[in-house]
Design a protein around this nucleic acid. Structure first.
Lengths: 341, 341
DNA sequence: TTAACCTATGACAGCGCTGTCATTACTTGA
DNA sequence: TCAAGTAATGACAGCGCTGTCATAGGTTAA
């Protein structure tokens, strides 16, 4: 293929293909976008000419003429966070092979940044949008509502989707983990959280409600920070926690990085797991099952959220309306040795 | 601002701004792109009109007319790999605030996929390209060479950059780590590697050369797989290694995930670290310093690679020619308890 | 048989912007 | 004083494609 590509650097256009076949440009355009509208004979000839000339449509021209780009804008709050790289993988895997391109925006957990990014996306007349959560600022929310393209909110389930939504209840998931700790006989469960974005907040609330219900909640066993999560921070926070609240016998961590830090620090402090200390993470990253001892965690379906969100978007772009615009993917508590006593 | 934005959903164009100020569209265009070419008075008036009307340039129209998009194409082999999320962070941080947009392609460690992605990028007449490594297929290499835009190859240093290059020598880095193990008195160092992409291969070669030089190389202490890295795989491979080559007294891991798996598995096997077994990772992810015991690793400057690569690209797009088109960022051996005996 | 209706194709304008080449009004130096 | 230069602005065409409407030829139903 592309036998005669770039004969002189000049771009191969629709018109070139059309001339080769002896039809008008618009027919070639149709053959590519709506093959059913073109006779089989021409379709075949055009296909061959496209291959021979190495024709590739110009997305800018297409966007300008159709007033609709092939860009799917994705706004996530972090690109280093494992959680979002999994989500992204799901999105990229699904969009790949479609005519759409992904444009990624990193809001760094800032509402104002999210709004800026959205404005940039909207200037491109995106085909669709994927945004994280439902805690948008009022302005952002309004922009989304008038965006005029399908929109999926991912990572959470909630009441009023702008359009479609795929996620799970962070409150419920953290509640289930907390109840598990209590069932295992832990009587002084603590909560360690970092970054404390809206989803972390809801996880905390889930923990709090469950602990209160069992009569084992204590304010001094809650340790949170606005710093962003990492393993060292988990270790540091846990050391602090044990200094202030030595009665702590279990820790629910806002995520697995923190949990791993707690695991390492507990070992340094000589606390036996799961007897003296239970540890539960959140997200169930691959490493949790392999740790020593293996660490209990709440599995979340991150890649699936990206995949299903994208699929719903594609379906809408394909003119279909999804059976259910509000999908709850749930969670699964993966009980392991770190909390089994 | 945007007092009267979308009075009827119609897009605000250059012409609208021009009419408001009483100048021609081209003057507005110039005021935005080359402010020095417009009188101060008009510049101010135009700036105000832009704000009042909420004008945002249409990137598609701009790309079509100028025959150059504002897209910087980035091709990486994986988005889940921590290494590349760090690189990406460096890139996004640097490009943010410039008029450029990033388009991300995931080649999944496949040459053919890389070529496909590149073709898609090229169809957009990108402003610049960032690609991973220098092991492109001949076709891809040729496409890059005729791309007609600045290009940065990141992650490695090598002989023939297509244009610019920022990275380090994986061979040297792995060699240094191996020599460290030998200096610490380890006499049967093994190598565990997963995925074995070109950079992993070069790390292996660095290990091999150093081990051979010291007379401690043994084929049966090399365990590699094409599976992709994760912690469990590290544990699994290490268990296998110890079954086949029980004399092993140290392990150089292709990356930190594997190293962490080795750490956990060593604990399960009851091997004391660093006495019975030395462990050295690669990349120095944050968690290595916090592990118990802290794990020696080769620090690589991932975010810096993304940052500096982007900066070189931006400089070129700004008409400057970089002082040095071939930057070696080096590495740093972070010696910790896991190999100190 | 004929009006009504499809199906396959084409003509045309225009999406919103920028490259190129004027044009106008000032400076400037000798 | 005037040719030559500079700074600031504008006119115009066209980037490559698609939406819209028109057209030609063939099919259908009554």
């Amino acid at each position: 293929m592309t036998d005669e590509s770039s004969p002189s650097g000049r771009r191969v256009t629709l018109a070139d293909v059309a001339a080769r076949v002896g039809v008008s440009a618009i027919t070639v355009s149709r053959a590519l976008r709506r093959p059913d509208m073109v006779s089989e004979r021409l379709r075949a000839q055009i296909g061959q000419a496209v291959r021979e000339l190495g024709y590739v449509p110009d997305p800018a021209a297409r966007a300008l003429a159709s007033r609709r780009s092939n860009v799917i804008g994705v706004i996530i709050p972090s690109i280093t966070n494992n959680v979002f790289s999994d989500v992204l993988t799901g999105i990229y895997d699904t969009i790949e092979g479609t005519p759409f391109d992904i444009q990624l925006g990193n809001s760094r957990y800032a509402e104002s940044k999210e709004e800026d990014i959205l404005r940039v996306f909207l200037s491109q007349r995106p085909a669709g949008l994927i945004v994280t959560g439902f805690d948008q600022s009022p302005v952002t929310r309004a922009l989304l509502e008038t965006a005029g393209c399908p929109i999926v909110q991912i990572m959470e389930t909630g009441e009023n989707p702008v359009d479609m939504m795929v996620g799970f209840s962070h409150f419920d998931a953290a509640g289930a983990a907390t109840r598990h700790l209590i069932e295992q006989g832990y009587r002084a469960p603590a909560f360690i959280g970092a970054r404390m974005d809206p989803r972390s907040q809801r996880r905390f609330q889930g923990y709090r409600a469950a602990a209160l219900a069992a009569g084992v909640f204590a304010e001094n066993r809650v340790l949170t920070t606005s710093e962003s999560s990492n393993v060292s921070l988990g270790a540091k926070l846990f050391a602090e926690l044990m200094a202030h609240a030595p009665e702590t016998d279990a820790v629910l961590c806002n995520n697995d990085d923190l949990a791993l830090g707690v695991l390492f620090e507990a070992r340094r402090l000589g606390l036996s797991i799961p007897d003296r200390l239970g540890i539960c993470g959140f997200n169930d990253l691959e490493m949790m099952a392999c740790a020593e001892p293996p660490v209990t965690s709440v599995r979340t379906f991150r890649q699936q959220m990206g995949k299903q969100g994208s699929e719903m978007l594609l379906a809408r772009l394909n003119g279909e309306s999804p059976a259910n615009p509000l999908v709850n993917l749930g969670y699964e508590l993966m009980v392991r040795r770190s909390t089994t006593r």
